[in-house]
Write a protein that binds this DNA or RNA. Structure first.
Lengths: 158, 158
DNA sequence: TGCGATTTGTTATAGTATAACATATCATCA
DNA sequence: TGATGATATGTTATACTATAACAAATCGCA
């Protein structure tokens, strides 16, 4: 997983964009300037960004000025697994497992909004058992842990 | 857990309200008319209800007409564990484990918005491991499975 | 009874998201 | 290569979700 620790930001942006581009190429999807830029913005910050935060950046750069521009790009990224929506925050993050088929789970810092993506074990566990026993068919699983990241535990103890 | 199966609705509303009332009594909390009524409304439907849906009912009954009335009652219910917020739907449901200390997980039908509450196993699993290894301190866990309930699988196959 | 704390009423506004339709661009194949 | 159907963007308008701020009422208790 990509945690809260330091990492090479430049290469992580580059490789994220490259992975998305490759995937679009392979699938015949259009990786347009707005879509690419929104993904870059999400990769640049490693925190959850609201649609309107993203729109502000786009507007500054002349790439679009109305909400639907941001929402459409985000829909595209989410639909294709390049980004995820954090329901708890009404915000979005770049995916850190580009390409891999995965069931994301998130660690969300309530102080700084940093988000780390990890894996949820979907098949096992009480939830799967409950779903099975009631006949509920799970299609998508949202797992979001809210708490304090290591850094903010220093600053905001207890 | 409370599943999607049939159950005695009347007794389930009565016992839910009674449990909340007892808890408030014990804790010295005020179980006011609006708060009681909102809990009843949530118990009556076994689906996720938006704050404004609830407000509509309150308004019809002369119990309040402005959003803060509904939101404040919901905040109270959620804070005290009588109800839960479904982040995925921006909506609320009555708790079906009144009183017990629990980590709720939800099965949400994307067709009819019915919600079943069950338990998440928080301590074990990949998530807990990931949190532990990064030093992230989990305070609250949101687990929401989106899919089709048994009934809607009949109506809306595959 | 009076005082502080809690709850409710109300106005206003902030923040999140999408419908609908016009225009432009792309992708392809005749 | 130029027509055409599909996809993407631009734009206006509006719907939905949520909270700030302050006044008025009510409650709990000394």
């Amino acid at each position: 997983m990509l945690g809260f620790e330091h990492h090479d930001h430049h290469s992580c942006i580059r490789s994220g964009v490259a992975a998305a581009e490759a995937h679009c190429m392979a699938e015949g999807l259009q990786f347009t300037p707005v879509r690419r830029r929104v993904l870059e913005i999400l990769l640049e910050r490693h925190a959850a960004l609201g649609a309107y935060d993203i729109l502000d950046v786009l507007r500054d750069e002349g790439l679009g000025s109305q909400p639907p521009v941001a929402y459409r790009a985000l829909d595209f990224l989410v639909s294709n697994g390049f980004a995820h929506k954090i329901e708890r925050l009404n915000a979005f993050v770049a995916c850190t497992h580009m390409g891999e088929d995965h069931n994301p789970a998130f660690l969300i810092c309530r102080d700084c909004d940093a988000v780390a993506e990890t894996q949820a074990d979907t098949a096992r566990g009480a939830l799967a058992k409950a779903a099975g026993s009631t006949g509920f068919r799970v299609e998508r699983l949202v797992v979001e842990a809210v708490g304090l990241c290591p850094r903010c535990q220093q600053v905001t103890p207890a």
